[in-house]
Structure formats: C-alpha cells, structure tokens
Amino acid sequence: MSAGTLHRTAYDDVPYTRGGVVDRTEVGALVRSAVDGDAAAWKALVEGLSPLVWSVVRAHRLSEADGHEVFQTVWFRFAQHLGRIREPDKAGAWLASTARHECLKVLKGLSRLTLTDDPRVLDRASEERTPEETLIDSEEAADRAERVRRLWQELDALGERCRQLLRVLMASPPPSYGEISAALGIAVGSIGPLRQRCLRRLRARMDARGAL
C-alpha cells in the first residue's frame, strides 16, 4: 500500500490487498455465504474482523474480564443477526459499532460502582505470551523489541483521543474510516486530520527519546 492510499478521501474505497485474512471487499460475500451455513466463510469473517473488535475493546480500557465478555457478546450477537444485517458489506462497521455500544454500557455500569481498579493496570497489554512475543524477546530482536515497547508506552502518554484512535487504527487488516467512525463515534471527515496529528505527535515523542 502506498502512503497515498492512507489519505482520508481515498482510504475508504481502497481494497485491502496487504497481509489481512479478509479482503474487505469480500466481507459482504462472506456474510452471505455464512448466512447459508458456510462455516469456512464464518471462520474467515472471525479471523479477519476479530482484531478490529478487539481493538475497540482495548481502546475503551475495559478490564480483562469485561473486555472478554464484550468481545464474546459482540460475536454472539453478530451470529444471531447474520441474516438480518442490512448492509453485509459493512459488517465491519456493524461489529465496531456494536462493540462500542457494549463498551459504553460497561463503563456506564461501572460508574455507578466504586472504582477500585487502577486504570493504568487495566490498560496493560495481554498477559498471555504469544509465540511472536517469545520470539521478540530473543537476543537478536532485542533492539526491535525495545522500540516496540517504547512505542507502546508513548502511545499511553499521548492523551485519550489519540490513544483511542491509534489503537483502533492499528487493527489488522487496517480498518476503513467507516469502521473507525463506527468504533469511536467520531465523524469520518475528522479521522484523517486526527490521525495525522496523533501519528506526528507520537513520532515527535519517539524522536525526543532518541528512539529512532
């Protein structure tokens, strides 16, 4: 993908050809196949869109337990609504929007109780070790791992709006601006400028740490 396709006006219509399990242009067809009982199509949807749903959960800083329940609720409901989704091509936005609303419900429920957890603790990366993470710990990858960790730390210090946007933006494959809009409740037109500002602020912070 060239940098030009990341520009906001172009972004939404560009088919994703890079790396992802699901090509977003196929989402509608996959939904229709899944409605007809095609388990392979369902699997492709789950693998292609789970990172987006997860990113919305993480962007809202839910506790581990709440985040897991929201993620499951979103997928259970998606399975239930499969044949009733009006725009199957926009299933990603449907999932992102459902995830956002469930996250907001959790936060609303929490605000009625006493907050006892340290929010910074809630925001740490998953405890689970992945093979990739183990790999990145190996000595030869140590420098890269260090930069990745710093990037993660700086992200946390960027402020809430930027942290949320970037956490959703970095889902894989890259979400469309329509999906980001559904995930965070912000206008599509404001995503491009916000993205630019947040990425540049992050880059400036990394430069200041001499991490480049």
Partner: peptide, 29 residues
C-alpha cells in the same frame, strides 16, 4: 502506522480463547 500495527499484533493480539469462542459462535446462527 504500520509499525504500530505490528506492535499491536505482538503485544496485544486477540486472545486465543476469545478467537475460539467467536468461531464457536457460528452455532448460535
């Protein structure tokens, strides 16, 4: 942005048990 995407995939992937429960959810259709 791409570097962040790789970082997220390494540091904060979808937990395997959640991925499995989303796959199993097809039975709820």
């Amino acid at each position: 942005e791409e570097e962040l995407r790789q970082a997220a995939a390494v540091l904060d992937p979808v937990p395997a048990d959640l991925l499995q429960s989303a796959l199993d959810a097809f039975a709820l259709h």
